[in-house]
């Protein structure tokens, strides 16, 4: 009976799963099934990950990457949301620019790194520009999608009460598009992190998680550093994503409530 109830607890099962994986990896290393030289022991990696948390060099690199990530994301929102509103409220401009957007969008943003290397002399400017370019797409597309989803009845109602187009935009379109924009920003935040780390890995620079990876690449226990860093990158990705989801739920409770009823 108690066993059944314990299995109903999600966090407990999750913790057991993670612990199980840790034990299996540790056992394969200890028994020599996979040589610890090729793939380090799970306990070694975990120990290094804990050490990294107090390593000032590593923390400075993390702060640098997160700084570029935050600045890039902020600029993206400032650029992409108004652009989405302009295109969304001017159907002629949107249909004219649509083919160009559809061609630019499938270009893998990381392919622009070699071009950016030739165009920029400053690594930080280059990183921010590439982040903004790559992160703009989900925000722009979600804004456009959200604007199409605005309830026409609400718009007509306001219009018939004599509100001008700007007032309709401010009072109806903006609030009802906001949840879509938020989803776009959450997707963009994952992309921004990917681009930031990729640029640091490929183009180098003075600091950042990717630069840290290059620097430890030469050390004899590079693999331990690489996996420990990947663990922290995963933690960062997970925490930022959960924070965005949490914020979305908090701010747009009315929206989820509305869609859940339907």
């Amino acid at each position: 009976m108690i066993g059944r109830r314990l299995l109903d607890s999600k966090p407990l099962c999750g913790a057991l799963g993670a612990a199980g994986l840790f034990c299996v990896l540790e056992a394969t290393g200890r028994t020599g099934l996979i040589s610890p030289i090729v793939f380090p022991l799970a306990s070694t990696v975990l120990g290094r990950a804990v050490e990294l948390a107090t390593d000032v060099d590593f923390l400075l690199d993390v702060v640098s990457t997160l700084g570029a990530w935050a600045l890039g994301l902020l600029l993206t929102v400032v650029i992409a949301v108004p652009a989405g509103f302009v295109l969304g409220t001017l159907p002629r401009a949107e249909s004219a620019l649509r083919p160009i957007l559809e061609f630019l969008r499938p270009i893998p943003s990381l392919a622009l790194i070699p071009l950016a290397l030739a165009l920029f002399s400053d690594k930080f400017d280059m990183k921010i520009t590439l982040i903004v370019y790559a992160a703009t797409w989900p925000v722009l597309m979600n804004t456009l999608y959200g604007l199409k989803d605005v309830d026409p009845l609400a718009k007509e109602t306001l219009r018939s009460f004599g509100f001008g187009p700007l007032a309709v935009l401010w009072r109806v379109s903006l609030p009802s598009t906001a949840p879509f924009v938020a989803t776009g920003v959450r997707l963009a935040s994952a992309i921004a992190l990917i681009v930031a780390i990729s640029v640091e890995l490929l183009a180098g620079g003075s600091d950042g998680i990717g630069v840290f990876l290059i620097e430890v690449g030469g050390s004899p226990d590079a693999m331990v550093y690489i996996i420990a860093t990947a663990i922290w990158a995963g933690v960062i990705g997970l925490v930022s994503d959960s924070l965005f989801v949490l914020a979305e739920r908090r701010i747009f409770r009315w929206h989820t409530a509305r869609t859940e009823v339907v």
């Binding site: 992190l193 780390i197 890995l201 590079a222 690489i226 860093t229 990947a230 990158a233 990705g237 994503d241």
Partner: peptide, 9 residues
């Protein structure tokens, strides 16, 4: 959640 470029090294 691990950014895929981390897999490269």
């Amino acid at each position: 959640a691990i950014p895929p470029p981390m897999l490269l090294p």
